[in-house]
Structure formats: C-alpha cells, structure tokens
C-alpha cells in the first residue's frame, strides 16, 4: 500500500446482513446510486459498493460488502464479517420470519466482529404500511435491549437510507475520537489515510488516480 495522497481520510468497512429478500441489495444501490432496483435478482455470494461521505469535515470512504442471505452462502460469507467497522442488520417489516431470525444474525455478528463494531438495525420496506407484520415499538425495544441503533427505512422511496449509513459512520467516528478503536488493528475495520498533498512529489510513482476511480 502506498502512502500517497488520497481524496479521503478514512476507510470504514461495512457489511449488510439479514435474510434473503429483505432488501439488502436495494438498500446498497439506493445509497450508492440513489436508485431503486425494482427487479433485483438474488445476490450471488457477495456484492460490493462504495461511496465517499463526510463526517465532521473528514472524508470517509465506505467499503460496503452486501452478503447473500441464502443458507448455501452463509458459511463462506462469514469471512466477510471479520474486520467490519459497521454492520447493517436488515429485516423486512412485512415478513415476521425475517424479524424472528435477527437473533441468529446478531449472534454471528457478535461472534465474528470486534466489540466496538457498530450495529445498525434496519426495518426495511417501511413504504408497505398496509402489510406490516412487525411494529415499530417491538423492534425498537429489541434494538434497545441489544444496544443497537435502529430505524425503519425504505429502499424504494429512500426514506432513512442515507441516515442509516451516515449515522453508523458518525458513531464509528465518535468511537475513534474517544480512543475506543485501535486504528492499527486490521479487525477495527477502519483505515486511516492521512492526506498530505505536499508529499506528492516525494512519491511520484504512486498511482494516485487508482483510488479515485469509482469502481
């Protein structure tokens, strides 16, 4: 890894987890492209997305791993949990079974990430009020009992999607400021990239634009 100048100061690694069909990939696309994919096919293995955001005047690159919820992928997708700074745990407010499975997703997350990993619970498909099966109150209580952040959101109309990703980042940033995260440990899920444009001339062979392309 080169130490050349970057157009961001930090990298935060996120994972998105939850049952198949709850809207994980749609949330990712809504966040990275501000679009709703109506006919999103089932994810194969993992999908990747990225976006640069700003928290407290710092530019943060989010590297987001969207995992497939199907059972046959689950064993291997666990290796993506390691080193996640943030985990978005998603259920579908119109399908109670996806809510009932949360404790198993939470157990995986707790076992495979570090104690400071920020977990944000998302009750997705809030636009489908008429077919709701899980109330806001009971999910809020579950979140409070387990120390999770929580919001209901809709990947379809965009409600609370930005907020969920950004509030997770703010919380991670706060943990850094308060010294709770060891930035030198790879499992923290955070990398610091001091941007020092003055050094460009010293590292002339650095492929600067590599990290600027939106892959």
């Amino acid at each position: 890894m080169s130490s050349g100048p970057y157009n961001y100061n930090y990298i935060f690694k996120y994972i998105i987890i939850g049952d198949m069909g709850v809207g994980k990939s749609c949330l990712l696309h809504q966040f990275t492209e501000k679009k709703f994919m109506a006919n999103c096919p089932h994810t194969i293995g993992v999908e990747f997305g990225t976006r640069i955001i700003e928290v407290a005047d710092k530019k943060i690159k989010l590297q987001i791993w969207d995992t497939a919820g199907q059972e046959r992928f689950r064993a291997v997708t666990r290796s993506y949990y390691r080193g996640a700074a943030g985990a978005l745990m998603v259920y579908d407010i119109t399908r109670r079974s996806t809510y009932n499975h949360l404790s198993s997703w939470l157990t995986d997350t707790r076992n495979l990430t570090n104690p400071n990993t920020v977990i944000f619970l998302i009750g997705n498909k809030s636009d489908l009020e008429s077919t709701r099966e899980v109330t806001y109150e009971e999910a809020k209580q579950f979140a409070d009992e387990n120390g999770l952040m929580f919001a209901e959101a809709s990947a379809m109309n965009g409600q609370n999607v930005e907020e969920a990703f950004l509030e997770t980042a703010r919380k991670i940033y706060q943990n850094i400021q308060e010294g709770r995260l060891d930035l030198n440990a790879s499992e923290s899920g955070v990398q610091h990239r001091p941007s020092q444009p003055g050094r460009t001339s010293l590292t002339s062979d650095t492929p600067n634009n590599k990290d600027q392309c939106s892959c």
Binding site: F48, S79, C215
Partner: peptide, 14 residues
C-alpha cells in the same frame, strides 16, 4: 470491481 477482485480469503477460512 477492483476491490471485489483483489479481496483475499482469510487463510484460516481457506
């Protein structure tokens, strides 16, 4: 895409 193609499996998982 670059990230997806350069990401490496943890040795213990392999």
């Amino acid at each position: 895409m670059e990230e997806l193609l350069s990401e490496v499996v943890p040795q213990q998982d392999l």
